[in-house]
Design a protein around this nucleic acid. Sequence first.
DNA 1: CTACTCGTCACCCGATTACTCACAAAAGAA
DNA 2: TTCTTTTGTGAGTAATCGGGTGACGAGTAG
Lengths: 266, 266
Amino acid sequence: MSNDSIDDPRATAVEQLEAFGLSAYAARTFVALSSLGTGTARDVSQVSEVPRTRVYDAIDELQDRGLVDVLESSPREFWAISAETTSRSFEQEMQNRTNLLRDSLSELEPVERTVEQRGVWTVDGQRTITDRVLEFFEEAAEGIVYMTVEDLLTDDLIDGLSDAAERDVRIQLGGVSADVQDRIQDDVPGAEMFESLWLWSDTPAGRLMMVDGQKVLVSALVNGDDGDPSDPRGETAIWGAGETNSLVVVLKAIFTWRLERDDEVP
Amino acid sequence: MSNDSIDDPRATAVEQLEAFGLSAYAARTFVALSSLGTGTARDVSQVSEVPRTRVYDAIDELQDRGLVDVLESSPREFWAISAETTSRSFEQEMQNRTNLLRDSLSELEPVERTVEQRGVWTVDGQRTITDRVLEFFEEAAEGIVYMTVEDLLTDDLIDGLSDAAERDVRIQLGGVSADVQDRIQDDVPGAEMFESLWLWSDTPAGRLMMVDGQKVLVSALVNGDDGDPSDPRGETAIWGAGETNSLVVVLKAIFTWRLERDDEVP
DNA sequence: CTACTCGTCACCCGATTACTCACAAAAGAA
DNA sequence: TTCTTTTGTGAGTAATCGGGTGACGAGTAG
């Protein structure tokens, strides 16, 4: 468990710059220059541990990206742009890249994402599973049934449900305590609540989803017996789709049976 | 001049994915899967030119990032998340990274960015120069004088001027034709216009900036004699700061002389 | 003139990664 | 069953890239 937030700013800055495609030397050089404001190759080399003779290459790289300016004197001096300008510049580049990616990918995406019939897909990790659930929420046309441990009902999921509700998708939500139910009612007005179908909170179960009666997902918490929802990797899920998919069939049966009973006896 | 926009979507998608840190194999595998929707290692290998035996590693990499799900059967099948979800995922990661970068860098940034006195800094490339100008606009406290070729007066620069104007910075803008002046007046109400100080449009001159009477920047277009503003790299600039900086001194003299004459004879 | 610094180059080496091949287990066909 | 093909794993090779070091001429200062 390395301390990431307490970590010194230099390390984090270097890490991000490298993730944005800078070489290690360039990243360290830039960070050094940022704290110096202005400096020569030797200054940079001393505070950044970059070999002096290589500072020049690093500067070239940075100059091409427009991150430093050079004062042509002897010794040469270097000047780094401000933190604000730097991050805005990368922000823009990345925005641009995500747009390019979105466009090119949707262009090649097959018109109809085939609905799988047989078999069950696996997904690991809380963040990933949530993404998957959100993806399914978006494709929902008729109804969503969602039952979850409270810790896993994050804001983005509520947003997803709310969006679906606005498209007149029927929302049925279970497993949440009374006080949280009130909050949900504000964000997702049309949502119908139902009591937990089983004793839920003590099991390692995580969530349980069904959309349009033909796509389902279930997850479990997997840190030994005591699933700890705060561990982002401690969740694993499976999902399946199609009217004849076995997972779908069995869950659909259970859900409709229980939910209709609830309807009869309110 | 490679055709980038006409380029096939596959290539652009792969390029972006690699920029986001995926290996070449992983990128090509994902793109292949995206267009297939679903497929086995062999399917992927055929459309992506990735050696079949390496598809598995690529899938591992993608699975860790939450970009594909795996159907555990024989042969194994792979499923790619939608274009929308993919780009949103990267968008989020990059947003996160830029924020980390912004925070860590501003933490190390020296309280006072020292005002250089001697010497002249050089900057190349239209985009970079614009960034630099914007950075100086933001630091402006009293007044901005800006004279520019019209082609270089992009929207972000007008925004920058507008922001400064709202901070009660005096804006003096020159070199733009009458019809563009009208448009500016809408966005930057307080701006004072002045006629081009010299015959401007026929020279390779690009722009000319002074903020707070102590920081100046001048640029020139450098594609042989006929500077073509549409070439993003065809501009080169120098800037200097400080009351005693020679570049500052001389430009300040010229500006105040000409602008005060304009004031006298409106 | 001497001592030192600065900037460029050439080179080495270690890590990463693309790429190939061998092979055993599994699935399918005869 | 037995034979053949396919599938997944793992080892091993080649090449590229980037970090690290040192040599050296030119420029600068005392």
